[in-house]
Nucleic acid binder design. Structure first.
Lengths: 202, 202
DNA sequence: TGTACATCAGTGAACGCGCGTTCACTGATGTAC
DNA sequence: TGTACATCAGTGAACGCGCGTTCACTGATGTAC
């Protein structure tokens, strides 16, 4: 038996999860409050007893989607050695299954430039996610080994560029019609990512 | 003296250019027909004597924006040697000036996932642009030199991954609040791109 | 060259529609005695 | 345990607004004689 308060909290969470799915599938402006509520098995009227505005929901669901995905991808692989971990993250991110299911994938690639237009609040949430992702990737990056007198490149720098490559690759693969070209984009980006992490001299 | 027919063609082109700017700045759903017409110095009523629908304008302006940018970036650099050409394209793409002026920059990074939701027609236009860009980059890629018995990686594959890295990097840099982090994303991606094209063994 | 008429690019009011949001209401849950 | 009342999560009709789109109109440009 759950109390009314707990019940309401569960409903709120269901709306957030429904929104996280629908925003990623149809875009922020493409998923309306009514659609989201319907997807959560509710009618639109009750929405404003849970959130002040659609904007608030955007923030909540963006934060949720990012965190949930990090848990899904990162925690799941704990225990494996660094290089295996990196390779698995790369191959799971840049594969057809992820491309074909934006609603349960990376929100950055699914929403793209749209989040940047949602104002400071959304950018703050993105920024936190970028920092978390950077850290997680950087921890597994093979250490910098400067050669030929050049400065070593930091693991954080390499990590964030690797993430950019993955986002760009997934987005590109979703934006073309030809399945053949789309698959090629994924494979090419995977290969470039592998080259980057396997690189021994920097 | 221009004929009425020529005048109309010029007006049509002005609407396309206005749309290309506004879509990149505010997003496809964020820029309305009225806004676009006003930006072109017209009223909204005349729009439908030039285009059947907003969707047609999206196609036209997307195609225009892609082509105009390729001319701007690629033709401008003709004559320079391959490696210099590649480095200039990378550094011009991944710099603060491009990040801060989405309305005159790469439409792929500016519109992101939004184009993928616009249907087959838009994806066809994106695909043509991706192929053109791939070709232009691949022509300047240092030739594959297979070592240690591994298969050589094709220049086209390396080119499309490089483009993905640039798109992802620019988009990420636009989606965070902190200027410091944003600059770091650009620099890190530039460095990864340089490492990739300077690589001698593959 | 001048006059009368036809054309048509562009104007601006108006349309239906779906959006985010509000609100009076309902009926199940929780509380008081 | 039963009865009376209070609470409040969720409903569904309605609101204003801006969107894409339509259309009767205007007035400058082009054509015919």
């Amino acid at each position: 038996m759950v109390s009314r308060k707990e019940q309401k909290e569960q409903t709120r969470q269901a709306i957030i999860e429904s929104a996280a799915d629908m925003f990623r599938e149809y875009g922020i402006s493409g998923a309306g409050v009514s659609d989201i509520m319907k997807e959560a098995g509710l009618t639109h009227g009750g929405f404003y007893s849970h959130f002040d505005s659609k904007e608030e929901l955007i923030g909540e669901s963006l934060g949720y989607a990012f965190k949930e995905r990090r848990n899904h991808w990162f925690r799941k692989l704990e225990g494996t050695d660094k290089m295996t971990w990196l390779k698995k993250v790369i191959s799971r991110y840049l594969r057809g299954d992820h491309r074909d299911k934006p609603h349960e994938g990376c929100a950055m690639a699914a929403l793209g430039a749209e989040v940047g237009r949602e104002g400071e609040m959304a950018k703050e949430i993105v920024e936190e996610h970028v920092r978390e992702t950077m850290t997680a990737l950087a921890q597994r990056m093979p250490g910098p080994r400067p050669i030929r007198g050049k400065c070593a490149v930091g693991a954080g720098d390499r990590a964030v560029a690797l993430y950019a490559l993955m986002i760009g690759g997934l987005m590109l693969s979703r934006n073309v019609n030809s399945r053949r070209l789309s698959d090629r984009v994924l494979r090419s980006c995977r290969e470039m990512a592998y080259r980057e992490i396997e690189r021994e001299e920097i």
